[in-house]
Computed example of a mutant assay.
Amino acid sequence: MSSAAAANRGSLDAHRIGHNRLTYTAIRKTVESVTAQAFHVDAGDVSATVEDDAGKLGVSVSVKLTLPPLLKPVPLLKPQPGGEPQPATATVFEQARAARKEIVARGTAITGLDIGRVDIRLTGGKSGQPKERRVE
């Protein structure tokens, strides 16, 4: 092989012609995984649908949140240095707002798709405590 042919072949390898495709299922599963991480829940507690949103990716997710123990005392306020006391935990609306930003940022970084609308539906909760079993 001549040096000119080798140089030409090297430039072809660097600029291969072709295409990449992400299937609907791959995009949906990616969005579900990113959402589960954003809400700190298991992947099985999230379902998603994706669709076109005026040229961007429109995302709708449903998340089954884990409920905190309702009968266990929880500190309501935590002190902030040089400031007013702040709630110890974020509200579900604050969690959803933060998760929406994370879904857009991480989903875009992973898939390369421009994510537009992100609808979040928080569905019934499940107890974070294991169920007690009684033996009679």
Rank of each mutant, 00 (worst) to 15 (best):
A26Y: 05
V41L: 02
V118N: 02
I17W: 07
S47I: 11
G107L: 02
D114V: 11
Q80C: 04
L122M: 15
Q86D: 08
A96N: 02
K131V: 14
P85C: 01
G112I: 07
P85Y: 11
L22C: 05
R106L: 07
S2M: 06
E102Y: 07
A48L: 05
F39P: 00
V50D: 03
P79W: 03
S11H: 10
F39G: 05
H15R: 12
I120H: 03
L65I: 10
S33W: 04
K131L: 14
E136A: 14
D53A: 14
A99R: 03
G10L: 11
T23C: 04
V31C: 00
G58K: 06
K131H: 13
Q37W: 02
F93C: 00
T25K: 10
Q86P: 00
A43Y: 07
R106S: 03
A105D: 12
G55Y: 09
G18L: 00
A88I: 08
E32R: 04
Q95K: 15
T66Q: 14
H19Q: 10
Q80S: 12
P85D: 13
S2H: 10
P85V: 08
E32Q: 10
I120R: 02
A7N: 13
Q129R: 15
D119C: 01
K29N: 13
S62L: 05
S47W: 09
T108H: 06
Q129W: 09
G58D: 04
H40F: 01
S60K: 13
L57I: 05
D45K: 08
I27P: 01
E102V: 09
H40L: 09
D119V: 12
E102G: 11
I120C: 01
V34D: 00
G124P: 04
T49I: 11
P73F: 03
